[in-house]
């Protein structure tokens, strides 16, 4: 059984991601975050439970929708907000924006914008772990469209060939921008089976119960650290807002309102809250206090932006090459 503290953490990190993302969504229309921004609202559970199951020395790397992965690996919401606003205090000094986050202190090696671009880089990081004989793993977050790119197959082939400690976590939210997976991949072919056919040890997890999901990730990661091999996990998930930006997009008509409703009804954060109360792990008042604490913390991090000065263009040419 997971300890009480872990219940708290799993709930807390999910909630924090959501509050951060909602803060971004609510402030986006002020036009101060001038970068393409892909919010994770609805998809927090995968990031939270896998992120918590990772050790600090485990590495993770991600794609364009990466705020949740960054935060779950320990990334600072202050630095995330600053990055989105283009300040030098941002995690990537304002050069990268929402799609290029980094936090080397916590071994979050980066998120990148081109579909599947970070996959081989994650595999390379794992090869280095192998060379250095380290007992850690690399977690590569991908979306469902990533397996449509050739580089995915090139990379997983090499990873399996060299028995690298890699966990692919595929967040299948069914859409590549507004195009449904049924228009992109054969309907009856499951992504995790594709990975299995390549030779990876493959699993299908669900996000409905984030505590169970954590346990599964935790066991799997321990196994990989002990016996380095390439594993693949597919989790079906759903984003509530538009592909890129802060708005509800059900009016666009590419997805059915009832689908959105169906997923919202089994929202993992709501589930977590009810689960904690029902199982008498926490009282309602304790959870409400925790929520309030998280909101205050996030507000404080956001308000910190008011203190920041405009960055200077003359400084950026120094970043092109390492001297």
């Amino acid at each position: 059984m997971i300890k009480k503290n872990f219940f708290k953490k799993i709930y807390e990190i999910q909630k924090k991601i959501r509050v951060v993302e909602e803060k971004i969504a609510s402030q986006y229309s002020k036009n101060k975050m001038r970068c393409p921004t892909h919010l994770s609202i609805g998809q927090e559970a995968v990031a939270a439970s896998s992120g918590l199951a990772l050790q600090k020395n485990d590495i993770s790397i991600s794609y364009h929708r990466s705020h949740a992965h960054f935060l779950a690996k320990g990334g600072s919401s202050k630095k995330l907000f600053a990055e989105l606003h283009g300040f030098e205090e941002g995690c990537s000094k304002g050069i990268g924006g929402s799609m290029h986050l980094v936090d080397l202190k916590n071994n979050f090696y980066g998120s990148t914008a081109i579909v599947s671009n970070s996959i081989p880089i994650g595999v390379g990081l794992a090869y280095s772990l192998k060379l250095a004989k380290k007992k850690n793993l690399v977690c590569i977050y991908i979306g469902d469209a990533a397996v449509e790119e050739g580089v995915f197959f090139e990379s997983i082939n090499f990873s399996i060939l060299k028995k690298l400690p890699v966990i692919f976590i595929c967040e299948n939210n069914f859409y590549s921008v507004y195009t449904h997976i049924k228009d992109r991949q054969p309907e009856k072919r499951k992504i995790y089976k594709l990975a299995s056919a390549m030779g990876a040890t493959s699993h299908l997890f669900t996000q409905d119960n984030p505590f169970k999901l954590f346990k599964k990730f935790d066991e799997l990661f321990k196994k990989i650290r002990k016996n380095p091999k390439t594993h693949f996990v597919e989790v079906e998930t759903y984003r509530y807002l538009e592909h890129c930006g802060p708005n509800d997009d059900t009016l666009l008509g590419y997805r059915k309102l009832q689908d959105v409703k169906k997923w919202k009804k089994k929202d993992p954060i709501d589930f977590s809250k009810k689960y904690l109360i029902k199982n008498k792990i926490f009282k309602i008042s304790q959870i409400n206090n925790l929520d309030k604490k998280i909101t205050n913390f996030v507000d404080k991090d956001f308000n910190y932006l008011n203190k920041l000065k405009k960055p200077q263009f003359k400084n950026i040419s120094k970043l092109v090459y390492k001297r």
Binding site: I121, G124, S128, S155
Partner: peptide, 9 residues
């Protein structure tokens, strides 16, 4: 990309 990953590490 694997080379980039290794060289970062």
């Amino acid at each position: 990309g694997i080379g980039v990953g290794m060289s970062l590490n």
